[in-house]
Deep mutational scan, measured.
Amino acid sequence: KAKLLVLLYAFVATDADTICIGYHANNSTDTVDTILEKNVAVTHSVNLLEDSHNGKLCKLKGIAPLQLGKCNITGWLLGNPECDSLLPARSWSYIVETPNSENGACYPGDLIDYEELREQLSSVSSLERFEIFPKESSWPNHTFNGVTVSCSHRGKSSFYRNLLWLTKKGDSYPKLTNSYVNNKGKEVLVLWGVHHPSSSDEQQSLYSNGNAYVSVASSNYNRRFTPEIAARPKVRDQHGRMNYYWTLLEPGDTIIFEATGNLIAPWYAFALSRGFESGIITSNASMHECNTKCQTPQGAINSNLPFQNIHPVTIGECPKYVRSTKLRMVTGLRNIPSIQYRGLFGAIAGFIEGGWTGMIDGWYGYHHQNEQGSGYAADQKSTQNAINGITNKVNSVIEKMNTQFTAVGKEFNNLEKRMENLNKKVDDGFLDIWTYNAELLVLLENERTLDFHDLNVKNLYEKVKSQLKNNAKEIGNGCFEFYHKCDNECMESVRNGTYDYPKYSEESKLNR
Rank of each mutant, 00 (worst) to 15 (best):
W139Q: 03
V188S: 04
G240T: 08
G275S: 15
Q203H: 12
R161M: 03
T260N: 14
Y107P: 03
I256F: 14
S52D: 01
L36R: 14
C83K: 06
L86A: 09
S28G: 10
K135F: 15
T18Y: 11
Y23L: 04
V216K: 03
G75V: 09
I229D: 02
L127D: 00
W192H: 05
V40A: 06
T74I: 15
C20M: 08
Y9A: 14
E37S: 13
Y23H: 06
R154I: 11
H239N: 10
G252E: 15
S126F: 13
D51T: 14
R236Y: 10
H24E: 00
G109E: 11
L49A: 09
V214L: 12
R118N: 06
D33H: 05
S123R: 13
K169M: 13
A265D: 08
G69A: 07
G146T: 09
R118K: 13
L121N: 01
I264C: 03
E228G: 11
F130N: 06
T98M: 02
L68T: 02
V214T: 10
L164M: 05
N72Q: 11
D253I: 00
R161K: 15
V149M: 07
R90I: 13
W139R: 00
S125A: 10
S273H: 12
N183S: 15
G62N: 14
A212F: 04
N39R: 12
K175V: 12
R241S: 03
R118V: 11
R232L: 01
K135Q: 12
F133M: 15
V96C: 08
L48G: 04
P197C: 11
L87S: 10
V147T: 15
L166H: 01
L48A: 02
I73L: 15
L189C: 04
E97A: 03
A2V: 13
K184A: 12
T148P: 01
W165Q: 04
S278D: 04
P197V: 14
N47R: 09
V96F: 03
H53D: 04
V6P: 00
P266N: 13
L117W: 07
G275E: 12
L86N: 02
P140I: 10
T254E: 15
E128P: 06
S205K: 04
L248K: 07
L48N: 05
L48Y: 09
P108Q: 01
V181Y: 11
G104M: 09
G79E: 05
Q204N: 10
D113S: 14
R236I: 01
S91T: 13
D201A: 10
S219A: 09
F270W: 15
R241A: 03
V190A: 08
E187M: 10
Y107L: 06
T98P: 08
P134D: 15
H239L: 14
P233W: 06
V181M: 13
L163V: 12
Q204L: 10
R274E: 07
S198L: 03
A259P: 01
S138D: 02
V216P: 01
G155V: 01
N220D: 15
N178H: 02
Q120S: 11
S150A: 15
S179L: 09
P266H: 06
F133K: 10
V216G: 05
L87P: 01
Q238W: 01
V40G: 07
S122A: 13
A259V: 05
A271F: 03
I264V: 15
Y160N: 06
T14D: 06
G170P: 00
P88A: 11
V96R: 00
V6Q: 08
Y268A: 03
P134R: 11
A265L: 07
H142A: 07
N222S: 03
L4T: 03
I256S: 09
S208D: 12
S152K: 10
C83T: 03
S125N: 10
L191V: 15
T74A: 08
N209R: 13
I21W: 02
A64E: 15
R274Q: 11
H153I: 13
I280E: 00
A2Y: 14
L189G: 01
N222G: 10
T148V: 00
V40Q: 12
S122Y: 04
A231R: 07
C151W: 11
L87A: 09
F225A: 02
N162L: 00
P197E: 09
I256P: 00
S101K: 00
S179G: 11
D171H: 08
D110V: 05
Y23P: 00
E258T: 04
T143V: 00
S122G: 15
L8K: 03
F133N: 03
G22A: 08
L86Q: 09
N145I: 05
T260A: 10
Y23M: 11
K61T: 00
N243I: 10
K38L: 04
P81M: 08
E228D: 07
S172T: 14
N262H: 03
R241M: 08
S28C: 12
E250L: 13
S152T: 14
Y94A: 03
T148W: 03
N27P: 02
G193M: 02
H44Q: 12
H153W: 08
Q120G: 01
N220A: 14
G146P: 09
E228Q: 13
D253S: 14
D30S: 01
G155R: 09
K56P: 01
E116L: 01
L66F: 08
G210V: 04
R241Y: 05
N183P: 00
C20G: 00
F159L: 04
L249G: 00
E97S: 08
T226F: 13
T43L: 11
N103A: 10
F11Q: 06
L8C: 13
E37I: 08
L111V: 11
G279D: 06
S85W: 03
E250H: 12
I112C: 04
K1V: 11
K3I: 12
L7W: 11
N145G: 13
V188T: 08
V42H: 14
G240M: 11
G109H: 02
A13K: 09
Y9M: 07
E277L: 13
N47F: 08
P108C: 03
L248Y: 00
D237W: 06
V42L: 00
N141V: 07
T148Q: 04
A230M: 08
G170R: 01
N27T: 05
A13I: 08
G62S: 12
V32Y: 03
D30E: 13
D110C: 03
L127A: 15
P227R: 02
I281R: 03
N145A: 14
L49N: 01
E97C: 03
S93F: 07
N27G: 08
H142C: 01
L249H: 00
S208M: 13
L60N: 08
K156C: 03
I73H: 04
R90N: 15
D110S: 10
I21P: 00
R224W: 08
D253K: 12
N39V: 08
W246Y: 10
T282N: 12
E258N: 07
R274H: 13
P227D: 00
E116G: 09
G62A: 04
P227W: 03
L163I: 15
P251R: 09
T14E: 09
R90Y: 13
L57I: 14
V6H: 01
D171F: 01
S208I: 10
L57N: 12
A259K: 08
T74Q: 07
Y107V: 09
D110N: 05
R236V: 00
L77T: 02
Y213N: 04
V40P: 01
R236H: 15
A259S: 15
N220E: 08
S45C: 06
S215W: 11
T143A: 08
T29I: 04
G275D: 14
F225I: 14
Q238Y: 00
N47M: 08
P140C: 13
L68G: 13
L5H: 14
T177I: 10
H24D: 00
S91R: 07
Y180I: 02
G75C: 06
H53N: 00
S101G: 15
V181G: 04
S123N: 05
I112M: 12
L87F: 07
N39K: 14
S205H: 11
G55L: 01
I281G: 00
I264F: 01
A271R: 10
H24V: 12
S126Q: 15
F225P: 00
E37F: 03
G55N: 10
V42R: 06
Q204T: 11
N220G: 13
L68H: 05
G109D: 05
A16D: 13
K1A: 12
L66H: 12
F225S: 09
P251C: 00
P251L: 01
E250K: 11
N182W: 08
P233H: 07
L248D: 00
V214M: 11
L49R: 05
L249K: 02
S205G: 13
Y180W: 15
V40Y: 05
F159V: 06
Y268K: 07
I35W: 04
Q204F: 03
F144T: 07
P251H: 13
T247W: 12
T18V: 12
T29G: 06
D30N: 10
L4E: 09
